[in-house]
């Protein structure tokens, strides 16, 4: 193999040739205080028999299994059934139960996008999020920049997600500071007349239920 660039070492490729820095292995970054404490408390609770390692594993698996599909099913149902939509706006947790979805014990509210109002959700203090309906929050949702900028300059944040709203639309930011969780009920896209619920649910992304985007275009 001919190389006309010069290296300061012999050409024994596959050994010692490092064009890119390695990503550090987990062990190379020190554990934080909270990682140590989380592990220690988990171990203690298992040792004391409060729960078993198997129960902990099953709970982590259940949390990881949550996905935006549940929220998307609810949005699609609300788009085709006005009665359901009214019940969902009144009580998301109860409406979820109608579809066999467990929304958990923390009250969740749906805020509806209309022609004049676009809603977006943030938790400025931490990362409160309706996990049982849309899964674990993305890293950006927990970032300091999203948390601080969404209240300070929501239109700039939305524009970075590709969402540019008309000046005459009210951007309404919901800060989940307390005991409730919020999700956005987006508006049904034009051009979806006659679509069935499953097809409609396919347009409903996690991000549009946070409110940083609109649902997918039916043309796409």
């Amino acid at each position: 193999m001919a190389h006309d660039h010069s290296h300061g070492h012999p050409h024994d490729h596959g050994h010692g040739h490092q064009p890119h820095p390695f990503q550090p292995d987990l062990e190379e970054t020190p554990l934080t205080h909270y990682q140590v404490m989380t592990q220690a408390v988990g171990d203690l609770l298992i040792d004391k028999g409060v729960f078993s390692a198997e129960e902990l594993r099953a709970m982590l698996e259940a949390i990881d299994a949550k996905s935006p599909a549940a929220g998307a099913r609810m949005v699609a149902r609300a788009w085709v059934d006005d009665g359901f939509k009214a019940r969902m706006l009144a009580d998301v947790n109860a409406a979820a139960g109608e579809l066999g979805i467990d929304a958990g014990g923390i009250p969740i509210r749906a805020v509806e996008n209309t022609e004049g109002v676009h809603n977006v959700i943030v938790c400025t203090l931490c990362s409160c999020y309706p996990r049982l309906l849309i899964g674990l929050p993305p890293d950006w949702y927990k970032s300091r920049s999203y948390r601080s900028r969404t209240v300070r300059e929501p239109r700039a944040v939305l524009a970075e997600f590709g969402t540019v709203l008309p000046e005459d639309v009210e951007v309404r930011v919901h800060d989940s500071t307390a005991d409730l969780r919020y999700m956005v009920l987006p508006a049904r896209p034009d051009g979806t007349e006659g679509w069935d619920e499953a097809a409609l649910a396919g347009l409903v992304t996690r991000d549009c239920m946070i409110g940083v985007t609109l649902p997918k275009s039916p043309a796409a």
Binding site: V151, R152, E153, P154, R155, A156, E167, D168, V169, E170, V171, R172, V173, H174, D175, S176, T177, A178, D179, L180
Partner: peptide, 26 residues
Amino acid sequence: LYRVIFDTADLWDDYQGAAQDTTVVD
């Protein structure tokens, strides 16, 4: 516990968004 709505322009001295934008905090 209350839901309280604010005019976003009242919250920030140099808010660049629209006058009708709002912020709801619990």
